[in-house]
Write a protein that binds this DNA or RNA. Structure first.
Length: 1098
RNA sequence: AGUCCCGUAGCUCAGCUGGUUAGAGCGCUACACUGAUAAUGUAGAGGUCAGCAGUUCAAGUCUGCUCGGGACUACCA
């Protein structure tokens, strides 16, 4: 017996199937039953379990899951090792805030040991929630043996990888500018800088400062001797009695005391302008980019240009010396206060001359180094000016301590410059500036010591390898990722933190000796060596996190070495997972080799510069290989208004609630079918409801239909001898053809990592073709009479379709698919659809001609129904015929083949073809695609000429195959293949057209047809009565009828038909019948009484 | 600020390598159907394909710019 159900309850199906999977170990079997030599390698990007899973995780994991399931269907063995990302700043910050401490307190108020213990506990806090959502959403991943990044083995593999990179000379220690939060006393990662809300619009005091050119104080006009150290004759060195300044704009006046250079664009045009200092009203000469004159001169409250020199290139300014803006400390490590060239200078903003303070800007640092100008760092790590900062010493550069009476030092600097006659412009400026997400205070860029991976050295190779990766969508690979690789910077590995993998580098105090550890065994050796040389008794700690590892002292060439205190960037942890998940190379070599590289990975686009990058970088540097061959990057899940979901806005969708309410499948199917996953998804629960109702509801109904009749007939398609192809009904062959076309399409889409069209194709097959056409057309075959070959053919066909659909949909809707599959399967069989193999489509059953014929049947039926509607002729009223113009024999054959379908669908007795040219009014249209290619510019004229063609001319074209056109005196032959000839009218008939199809309806209702119509009306009413009386569809009845004369007549004529349709054993007229009168068309009346027949024959 | 994605009916989305009536589903309105019935069919209303310019015989589709939404990257002074 097939199970029959009252209502579709997807959440209940989830639970039932989940239990079935677990009891029967289906996930494991779906892997181990596939051959080892047919692997499909998938890597799980490790989530961090210190936060709750969100609906976007359901999205990302659906993508991962469905392609893995699809490959399993294709016979691949898909191992899926889960993983957890356990280190890093987010976890540390969470712990800090929970313990109410700051970074400074670590090692003081709390030991590093206890602190790290707290991190370790926090990191898995929501593991249960994650495991729960994983189960409930049907994501198959091995969570029993996950890799965990804080485990000793994992960390050892990371060290090994780093050592490989070190041995290639790609690791160095450098001094660089990094985001730093003085308020929190900690450096920040770029990740943190990109937390929502980090960039805030702020209004800063900006200054255009005037840097006095050395030897430019008015005496320049007199000659170039004297103490002028600017030896080069300059174009600006023309006659002028006024002091000369270089002017530069800054939004951070507090960096001005640390200025050591001015940077110009070598190819930018500059000019010297004579003007008046707006604050002192002295006449001065200033140099700036010509393009920016209008920005600073001639406006309201702006000085005027009194005189202007010829332009000269920035390169001519290079080397020019100027006097330190605010005299004080000078750099010891370079030749400062010079004009230097820099590519990054533009004329978009400022003056075209860039104030350069190498300690407080990445560009500044870079260009400063290149030109050897040295640096000044007059601000300390608390955000305060140092003693060397003259009048500003000791003051905070921003209000880092929330001082009530904080006076903005930037304003004071501006005032100070004004008084000295060295301010050209002071103004407020609104721009976005990064803030520390914890303290909400502005970030400062500060020089810090760090370890780097010289990834820039392998960027060409990374780009080459990237081109071999199949990105979905391609634009992310070429654009976002490709561009990122083009401009690749070195990878800053260092994190001055506590909870992470320690850098395995030991150095002597002065840094001249260095040991880089690549394994625990190596560390063991080095420890023994150190013990021997230093007379110590150390051993390798069991836990190689801080603080234990920090206590290890090594030895080399007579020096004591201590560990560099930094940790490794967590992104290196996750990028190491292909190797570290197997503790490679210390174990599992063979397993690793067959699991590398990945065939497929998937994450959100936000991982482009995260995990996608670190996987790629490590693979390129260590193995000269890609880490993954195919990658899908999905977009964001937004709320239904298109806003980002956040707890703060309260618009976050709870994945548990969604799945509990609508089922995992409806949620998954909605997410994948609604739009391409790489577009952002506007998540709307109404959409999930619609999927549930429209797709799953329809499929469920279709199954219910099958089950209902299969049970009545006690039919079991399994083991039933397949009906020979030639004995199948046309509609069976049609739907099987469509099913196989669908299989081809779905297989191709999944193989190309393009699931959205696959879902839509399945949806449209189920809704439009299987349910609304095949089942509707075939209903009578299921309920009528004995088990014939035709009936068996119908059962077998529907069974085949449902079974195949369950396979095709199973990657996306694993629960319902399995439910459907198992309900269809014979009782007692515990097979799961997820253990089956998807057979290649049977191309032989794809019959394009048949699909075309059925398309005609559907379209012609629609036309007839619309004509009936227009003429107000209800479908139950049989009509004699329709006329269909047939301009070709092929068309006629095709329509004739499906005429019976049109007849039953529209209640018409015959389909008649019109070939007599006299009847048909033809129209002609150019085939633009074909003709346009050939004619090009003449197309317009040709289209006009063709539309002018007479019936006669069309006839000539049809009979001879060609027709000459005269296009403005030019003769052009057109052929019948280059035009479409259609009929749009049959004079004297009611017609409807759809493209090339035209149908006319015979609206004449003869008395005979009317009687038949009445009979059908009566049947319909009786059927309703049966149903209202709660009869089973198989119950037989006795009928009594009282009716007006025409109805009696109709009943007499169609007595057999009525009895057969209503399963009546007897039918009699009883004039005095006491029953509700039935509502019949016209003025006819009838009363009907029915009773269950005494005995049900069968 | 740069890079990338998106902008087609009230809503969610199709629209292949440019080809002449721009489609579907939902929603709305009317009618029909009724042995899958909390289903189904037919019809109707609803579109300057974000805007501007260009290429072309022909642009929703290709190019450039502008505007709007989003993401990523970014102290460009």
């Amino acid at each position: 017996m097939y199970k029959e159900f009252k209502n579709l309850d997807l959440p209940a199906i989830d639970k039932e199937i989940l239990a079935f999977w677990e009891e029967n170990d289906i996930f494991r079997r779906s892997i181990v039953e596939r051959p080892k030599d047919q692997p499909f390698v998938f890597y799980e990007g490790p989530p961090s379990a210190n936060g709750q899973p969100g609906i976007h995780h359901v999205m990302a994991r659906t993508i991962k899951d469905m392609f893995c399931r699809f490959q399993t269907l294709q016979g691949k063995r898909v191992e899926r090792k889960g993983g957890w990302d356990t280190h890093g700043l987010p976890i540390e910050l969470k712990v800090e805030s929970e313990l109410g401490i700051t970074k400074e307190d670590i090692g003081d108020k709390i030991s590093v040991d206890d602190y790290n213990k707290a991190c370790r506990e926090t990191v898995m806090r929501f593991k249960d929630r994650w495991d729960d959502i994983t189960r409930k959403m049907g994501y198959w991943v091995d969570l029993d043996n996950p890799y965990i990044t804080y485990e000793r083995e994992y960390m050892e593999s990371v060290w090994w990888l780093l050592k490989q990179i070190y041995d290639k000379g790609l690791i160095y220690k450098g001094y660089t500018i990094q985001p730093y939060s003085p308020a929190a006393g900690t450096g920040l990662s770029s990740h943190e800088l990109n937390m929502p809300g980090a960039y805030q619009d702020v209004t800063d005091t900006t200054v255009v400062a005037m840097f006095p050119v050395q030897g430019g104080k008015g005496e320049r006009g007199k000659g170039e001797k004297g103490e002028n150290s600017n030896a080069r004759p300059l174009p600006l060195n023309s006659l002028t009695p006024y002091p000369l300044y270089l002017i530069a704009w800054t939004t951070t006046p507090w960096t001005l005391p640390s200025n050591t250079a001015l940077t110009v664009g070598p190819n930018i045009d500059y000019v010297r302008v004579t003007t008046i200092n707006p604050y002192t009203e002295d006449k001065v000469d200033v140099i700036l980019a010509e393009a920016l004159i209008d920005k600073w001169f001639g406006g309201n409250n702006q000085p005027k240009v009194l005189e202007k020199s010829e332009t000269f290139k920035g390169s001519e300014l290079v080397g020019l010396r100027y006097e330190q803006l605010l005299p004080g400390a000078t750099p010891q490590d370079g030749d400062a206060f010079r004009v230097i060239p820099g590519d990054f200078v533009t004329t978009d903003a400022g003056t075209g001359i860039v104030h350069t303070a190498p300690s407080f800007g990445a560009d500044d640092m870079m260009v400063g180094k290149a030109n050897g100008i040295g640096s000044l760092t007059l601000v300390d790590k608390t955000g305060r000016f140092t003693e060397d900062a003259g009048p500003f010493a000791g003051r905070y550069v921003k209000n880092y301590k929330d001082e009530e009476d904080y006076v903005d030092v930037n304003i004071d600097i501006a005032v100070h410059l004004k008084k000295r006659g060295q301010a050209f412009n002071v103004a407020k400026y609104n721009h976005s500036y990064p803030h520390c997400w914890r303290t909400d205070k502005p970030v400062l860029y500060y020089p810090l010591d760090s370890w780097f991976i010289k990834s820039s050295a392998v960027k060409e190779r990374m780009q080459e390898l990237n081109r071999t990766i199949n990105w979905q969508p391609a634009s992310t690979g070429e654009g976002r990722f490709g561009k990122w690789l083009e401009n690749l910077q070195d990878w800053n590995l260092s994190r001055s933190r506590y909870w992470g993998i320690p850098l395995p580098i030991w150095r002597s105090e002065e840094g001249e000796e260095e040991v880089f550890i690549g394994s625990l065994a190596e560390l063991e050796e080095q420890v023994s060596l150190a013990n021997e040389k230093l007379g110590l008794d150390q051993s390798v700690p069991e836990d190689i996190h801080r603080p234990y590892i920090d206590e290890v002292v090594l030895w080399k060439n007579g020096k004591e070495l201590r560990r560099e205190l930094d940790l490794i960037d967590v992104w290196f942890d996750s990028g190491s997972m292909p190797y570290a998940q197997f503790h490679y190379p210390f174990e599992n070599k063979e397993l690793f080799e067959r699991s590398y590289p990945a065939d497929f990975i998937a994450e959100g686009v936000d991982q482009t510069r995260g995990w996608f990058y670190t996987l790629h970088a490590i693979a390129t540097m260590v193995f000269d290989s890609v880490a993954y061959k195919n990658v899908v990057s999905n977009g964001l899940v937004l709320d239904k208004e298109g806003k980002k979901m956040s707890k703060r806005l309260g618009n976050a969708v709870d994945p548990f609630l969604t799945i509990d309410t609508y089922g995992a499948d409806a949620t998954r199917w909605y997410m994948i079918s609604n739009s391409d996953p790489w577009d952002n998804l506007k998540f709307d629960l109404d959409g999930v409801k619609e999927v549930q109702r429209r797709f799953f509801g329809t499929l469920y109904n279709t199954y219910g239909f099958f089950a209902l009749y299969a049970n009545i007939d006690d039919y079991n398609p399994v083991g039933d001898e397949p009906v020979a192809v030639e004995d199948l009904a046309e509609i069976d062959r049609w739907v099987l053809s469509r099913l196989n076309s669908l299989t081809v399409a779905v297989t191709r889409h999944f193989a190309e990592y393009d699931a959205t069209p696959a879902c839509r194709a399945i949806e449209s097959f189920v809704n439009d073709e299987l349910s609304n056409w095949y089942v509707r057309q075939s209903r009578r075959r299921f309920w009528r009479g004995e088990m014939t070959t035709d009936k068996r053919a119908a059962y077998q066909t529907l069974f085949t379709c449902l079974t195949r659909v369950s396979q095709l949909m199973s990657p996306v809707a694993p629960f319902f698919a399995d439910w459907l599959y198992r309900n269809l399967a014979p009782a007692g069989d515990i097979e799961s659809v997820h253990l089956t193999y998807l057979a290649a489509a049977d191309e032989a059953t794809i019959d394009e001609d048949l699909e075309q014929r059925m398309a005609y049947a559907q379209r012609i039926s629609s036309l007839v129904l619309s004509l009936r509607k227009r003429e107000k002729l209800r479908v139950r009223q049989p009509l004699q015929k329709i006329l269909v113009p047939a301009l070709s024999d092929e068309f006629r054959r095709r329509v004739a083949d499906v005429a019976h379908i049109i007849q039953s669908e529209t209640n018409i007795k015959e389909v008649e073809f019109l070939t007599d040219d006299g009847f048909l009014k033809k129209t002609i249209k150019p085939n633009f695609k074909v003709l346009g290619k050939r004619l090009g510019k003449q197309m317009k004229a040709a289209a006009a000429a063709i539309s002018q063609m007479t019936e006669e001319a069309i006839g000539q074209l049809e009979s001879q195959g060609t027709y000459p056109l005269d296009l403005n005196g030019e003769a052009v032959e057109i052929t019948s293949a280059e035009v479409d000839i259609l009929t749009e009218d049959i004079p004297g008939w009611k017609v409807a057209t759809d493209g090339e199809l035209t149908v006319a309806l015979d609206v004449n209702v003869t008395p005979e047809l009317e009687r038949e119509g009445l009979a059908r009306e009566l049947v319909s009413r009786i059927q309703n009565l049966r149903k209202d009386s709660g009869l089973d569809v198989t119950d037989r009845i006795d009928l009594q009828i009282a009716a007006s004369a025409p109805v009696r007549e109709a009943v007499s004529t169609h007595r057999d038909y009525i009895m057969e349709e209503t399963l009546a054993d007897s039918l009699s007229f009883e004039d005095g019948l006491d029953a509700e009168p039935l509502d019949l068309p016209g003025d006819e009346t009838a009363k009907v009484a029915l009773a269950v027949a005494a005995q049900t024959p069968n």
